[in-house]
Amino acid sequence: MDKILVGLKRAVDYNVRIQVKSDGSGVETDGVKMSINPFDEIALEEALRIRERGEASEVIVVSIGSSESQQQLRTGLAMGADRAILVESGDVPDTLSIARVFKELVDRESAELVILGKQAIDDDNSQAGQMLAAIWERPQATFASEVVLDGDKARVTREVDSGLETLEIDLPAVITVDLRLNEPRYVKLPDIMKAKKKPLETIAIGDLGIEAGPRLEETAFEPPAGRQKGIMVDDVAGLVAAIKDKGLV
């Protein structure tokens, strides 16, 4: 296969404790550490391994968002991607638009495989890959924990609620990855230097001629209903009494 596209979303780092702004207008992102969405690192790692096995010739990382997403793309290049495309957009667009952007890039690049994360850990949507597969009219193998390529087909094992499901899909296709697919490599300093010379193309989202999806309007943000800290017991007898007291066994 020739090209693989990988989505790298810039998202609040998974270690950050999220705070809702006191006026309910959003969550606090000022001065907060931003990273590549963790699932997307796994997506990129898988694409790199496929290329390193000689099963693909080029890995292109794509981010849609503000110019700051260049940081995440540079990290992707340092991990080993060949080139990067930033689709610049003031706000992060709605998910259907994200899928339409990927479809446009798939056509431009004649990509045969798109690997995305199973979900972005900020919006927790878990939608973009499935939407892309729908409008591309191609297979989707979501929540992948194993990917085996075989010519113009792939066998993908998926983490589902009842266990592990295996699908066979024809390429081109979309795969979204789960956490156990692989362990992403660490970026080494020399690679960061090398990555500075790799091509990073910027396209204004307006130039792609994408029609935005009907918008879901986010009107208010609030912290979740908290759970109260409960009681501590001293020993098993105390624990058993407390559980029985609540009529739970």
Binding site: Q127, Q130, G213
Partner: peptide
């Protein structure tokens, strides 16, 4: 897992966000 896999595909075919 069933619904998360399926419903975005349905939504995109209908031209709406999910």
């Amino acid at each position: 897992a069933f619904g998360k896999d399926l419903m975005p595909r349905v939504a995109a075919l209908m031209g709406v966000n999910q």
